[in-house]
Amino acid sequence: MSGLRRAGVLGSVVILGMAVIAVLLAFLQGPDQIGPGFAAFFKGVAGNETSLASTTRYLTPILLIAVSASVSTRAGLFDVGQIGQYVIGGLVAAAVGAVVPGPGLVIASIALTCGAVAGGCWAWLVGRLSYATQVQLVVLSLIANSFADGLARYITRTFLQDPGKFSVVATRELPHEAWLPILVPRTSLHLGFLIAIFIAIAVWVVIRYTTIGHRLTMFGRNPRFAAVAGVDSSRFPLRVLLCSGSIAGLAGAIEVFGVYHRYQDGTLGGSNSIAWTGLTAAILIPAGVLVMIPVSMFLAALTTGLVGVQREIGITSGLGTLVQGLLIVIAAVALTKRVDGPHPRKTPHSAPAALEDQRSGN
C-alpha cells in the first residue's frame, strides 16, 4: 500500500472515530451533549499547553511498545510479552539510577541503557524458554507478563523499597538532576518523546534500507527460504526478541525517568497498562513501523480527549477503552484489506530473486 493510500485509510478511521464518539455521546447523554462533548474532547487533547503535552507524553510509551511489537511481528514471532519487558526495563532503570553516582546525564544514560538491556534479556529468556519447552511463544510471553509484574513487585518490596513510602510498593526516588528534561515548562512533556520518535524512524530506516531489515522481513515471510539464504534459523529469532525487547525495556525506563521518577507497583504493568494499547495496535495494524507514529498519536489523543469528556460531561471511564478497541479493529480490517486484497498475502519476490538480493546485500 502506498503512503498516500495508507494516510487515506487512517484519515477515514479518524473521521469514523469522531462519528462513533458522537453516537455514543448522543446515546449516553442525549443529542444536546454532542457539541459540548466534542468541545471537552478537543480541550482534553490540545486545549492548552498542558493538555497537548499530556497527549504527547502518552504517545511515548504507546509508540515505543508498538515499534517493539512491530519488529517481532515482522519476523513472524507472535510475541505479546512487551508489557513484561516494559516493567522489567522500568524496574532495572529505577534500581540502577538510584545507586549510580555522577552527574545527572551520566546516571540517566547508564540507567536507560540498563533498562533497555534488561528488557531485551527478558524477551530473550522467554524466547529461549519457549524454544526449550516447545511451548508457543504467544502463550509463554503472555504468562511472562504477569510473572514480570509479580517479580518486580517482590523485588521492590524485598530489596528496593523506599523506607519513606510504606503505604505503596516503590523504589527510592531518582536524583532530580537525572530526571529527563522537560521540553515545555510546567507540563509533563519530556525528552522521552523525542527519543521515541527518533527510535521509530531509526527502526524504519534499518528495516527498509539495510541487510538486517531485509533478513527480518524475509524470515517473517518464509523462514525456510531465509534459512536457505543464510539466516541462522535457530539464533535469529532470539536476536530479534533481544532487539525488540530492548525497545520495550527502554520504554519502561523512559517512563520511570520522565514521569514517575521511581518504580512504583501498578504504574507500568497490570491490565490497565498503557502498553497494552501500543501492543494491540501493532498486532492488528501490520502496516509498517513508520505508520505507528500517527496511529500512536491518534490513540494518545483518544486517551486524553475522552478523559476530558469524562471530566466535563460525566461519561463512564470505560468509554475510552471501548472506542480505542473498536477503531483499532476497524483500522486493522481496512489496512489488511487494502494491503492483501481478496487473497492471502503472498511473498512479493520469487525465491531466486530474493536469494539474489540476499547475496548482493540489498
Rank of each mutant, 00 (worst) to 15 (best):
G213L: 11
G314P: 03
S234I: 02
I15D: 11
A275N: 05
G320A: 12
G278V: 06
L238I: 06
G47R: 01
G245R: 01
S296E: 03
T156R: 11
L306Y: 09
I315Q: 03
R338M: 14
G30Q: 12
P185K: 00
R157K: 04
G35L: 15
D340M: 06
H349F: 11
I182H: 01
L10I: 15
P294Q: 08
V295H: 02
G89Q: 08
W204C: 03
A26L: 10
T210N: 14
T187I: 07
P237G: 00
D79T: 02
T113E: 09
I201W: 13
D149I: 01
I21H: 13
G220I: 00
T267E: 02
F42R: 03
T60I: 08
P286N: 03
L160E: 02
I34S: 12
S70D: 01
L299E: 07
A69Y: 11
S51C: 07
G17I: 11
L335D: 01
S244I: 00
L137D: 00
A196I: 05
G37Y: 13
L290T: 10
Y86F: 15
V259C: 02
G120V: 09
L355Q: 08
W179D: 01
Y58C: 04
A301R: 10
A26I: 10
T113V: 15
W124M: 07
A229S: 12
L64W: 11
G213I: 06
I330Y: 12
S350I: 08
V339Q: 09
G17K: 12
Q82R: 05
A111T: 09
L306E: 00
G84I: 09
R57E: 10
T171F: 12
V100D: 08
G8F: 14
V13W: 09
W276V: 06
V126S: 08
Q161W: 05
A53C: 05
F42H: 08
L129E: 02
F41W: 12
Q310G: 06
R345K: 15
G120W: 10
G44P: 09
A46V: 10
T73M: 13
T347H: 05
G314T: 04
R311L: 08
Q264G: 01
A22W: 15
L268F: 06
G104M: 05
I107F: 06
G269S: 04
V117S: 04
F38N: 07
Y131M: 03
G249L: 09
S109G: 11
A95Q: 10
Q264I: 02
R262V: 02
R186V: 03
H214R: 14
T321I: 10
F219G: 00
V240E: 02
T73S: 08
T133C: 03
W276K: 09
V309C: 06
G305A: 07
G278C: 11
I143K: 06
W276F: 14
S273W: 04
A123F: 12
D265P: 00
G314M: 05
E49T: 05
F147T: 04
A19K: 13
G11R: 14
I107K: 13
F78L: 07
L191I: 07
P31H: 09
